[in-house]
Design a protein around this nucleic acid. Structure first.
Lengths: 343, 343
DNA sequence: CTGAAAGCGCTTACAG
DNA sequence: CTGAAAGCGCTTACAG
């Protein structure tokens, strides 16, 4: 290689060149007060000249901080996680933290969990669904004293930061929206039962029907796993029934897209012959035709808020069991996949 | 909290309890040879009892290793990056590394780059497109002596690990496939010009037409940026022309999905009235209807190979300018979006 | 506003 | 096969 690998300058090199003590250099690089302007200038100049880079590892070892935040995910793909990732990455960058992503596949995979928690001392950890409701993970985090934030949790945990939307109300409103369009025979495709939101969304659907005097039928409620394939399967089940529903509410957009695909194969026109709605406002919602009416969940804002409450200046509450918590607003995004039966 | 935060045991605690020196404990935890079995057993037992966790930071500081690999991305969402992420994450886990994701948005964003490179001492860095062709990034990495792997690069760099497919040949074959189905008026939607593969794919399209004696027309080649929206815009442009193409080859699947959406809105039947093919075998390819015929690129295998060549046992070549390199096989995935005109 | 000393928890030579 | 010593590059008390 024609590139010289320069040996890194250390803090004491800078101190020597600037004619001050290491501690003063340290003060400058940690934005502490009480450093005279002229020394500060000299130090910055010396640091620039030597191309000084404070070592993360040394800072961590000496200062009991790692400058590393963990994001624990179940599965690193999909639009939801991508949004969480993007938002958390941005927040980390702005706050001077680095993000380590760890995949915790199986529920209560203690071996992996212990390995991860043991090797890195996280300054904070963000948990995405469904890991945010894994008690093994929560307890391990508590035991190691790592401040934790949960995105979209089911159960409450007062000692951890928590951001969420009201899945129940959102599903209730969406169902009401369909009812308002004259639909009575509305099917529901459930979400992955391991995700806390699945039950909430189902409950919203059921209660809305009941609230409007529409009988609830198990024939119209079919299982799903949040995947495109499971949405397809659910549609097949639904279409095999005696009377086809006029509307299908899928607990997420991926499944709604699966329904759309099956409808198309069978020559069922959407929305004129069948209305379909989803949940999440996933990227897929606007990629399929017709674009899906869905519930928008402000995932990026939620992740940003979680980070702020976890690592921000006013995050001290996390230490004494009074962690921040916030419920974000959802929004029904009307697009082209619902027909007005009263038209 | 009702959870006791136990103070972490250190290596010397373990050494004391096991009745050996720290060095011997260190040997055990680094899988070095030359430790008698009985001492090893004692040490492991003591470590378990004390719940000893070697500190990543101390190991890094003392041993000049960080156990951290960097993944630099342009934009952390999308199916391609998700696959790279998933695969790299798995490889890291197996090899005992942690993955830090860094977003380098703008081309040559030196400030952010320097900050990132300065604060963490990466044991290796993986570059995804289009960053893998950003000379500022490449040179900065060389200057800091960090072993680097590039996924899908355009230009060659013998001192860095490199994995790729032959985009030119793949696009050539795909075009030939359309020609074989009787298409002559084949349009092409270009990719983001900042991605090296865009030019290769375009070249493959052009050469294939020429190779089969079909005139190439600028009217049939429209710009795109790899996004759904740009695919839509390109379709509008193409449909505004005097004679509609019988087939459209989009440089990626997202854009192909955009074309599909516009076709649907205009009542153009796919594939009977218009054939559409994409590239990448992105998740979107099987979510839309009809499912897209496309070129499958084994992104996960490529990322795994890159990691192996970068961090694996036989990765020494990276140090002396003889980095590994591999061209993976692509595959044309025939689905439902192409009509046979000779039928 | 500034600094000297000790120490964070490991690994690297080096010696046996 | 094993260990004592020094040191990685910072920050934390502590003292002025």
């Amino acid at each position: 290689m024609s590139f010289v690998k320069t040996k890194n300058a250390t803090m004491s090199d800078v101190a020597k060149l600037a004619g001050v003590s290491m501690k003063t250099v340290s003060r400058v690089f940690n934005n502490e007060k009480y450093v005279s302007q002229d020394k500060k200038d000299k130090i910055l100049e010396a640091a620039a000249e030597l191309n000084f880079k404070p070592s993360l590892q040394a800072r961590g070892l000496a200062g009991h901080k790692s400058y590393i935040v963990g994001l624990f995910v179940d599965e690193p793909s999909g639009d939801y996680i991508s949004k969480v990732l993007r938002s958390t990455l941005r927040a980390c960058g702005e706050a001077g933290y680095h993000l380590v992503v760890e995949v915790l596949k199986e529920r209560g995979d203690e071996a992996k969990l212990r390995r991860v928690l043991n090797s890195i001392r996280f300054d904070g950890v963000v948990l995405s669904p469904p890991i945010c409701d894994d008690l093994v993970v929560l307890n391990a985090l508590r035991a190691s004293g790592v401040p934790t934030a949960r995105i979209g949790p089911g159960l409450d945990a007062p000692d951890m930061v928590q951001v969420q939307i009201d899945d129940y109300r959102a599903a209730y409103e969406m169902t009401e929206y369909l009812i308002g369009k004259g639909h009575k025979r509305i099917a529901f495709i459930k979400g992955d039962p391991n995700h806390a939101c699945s039950m909430e969304r189902e409950r919203g659907y059921v209660r809305a029907l009941q609230g409007h005097g529409i009988p609830v039928s198990y024939d119209l409620m079919v299982p799903g796993m949040f995947s495109f394939a499971s949405g397809r399967a659910a549609a097949e089940t639904l279409f095999a029934g005696a009377v086809r529903p006029t509307a299908i509410f899928a607990a997420n957009d991926e499944m709604a897209a699966g329904v759309l695909a099956v409808a198309r194969e069978r020559g069922i026109q959407v929305p004129s012959e069948l209305s379909i709605v989803g949940f999440d406002d996933d990227a897929v919602a606007t990629v399929v035709s017709p674009a899906l009416t869905t519930v928008r969940q402000p995932v990026e804002e939620m992740a940003a808020a979680a980070f702020e409450m976890l690592m921000g200046d006013e995050a001290d509450g996390v230490e004494d069991g009074q962690a921040g918590r916030r419920t974000h607003a959802y929004e029904i995004r009307v697009r082209e996949s619902v027909a007005d039966l009263k038209g």
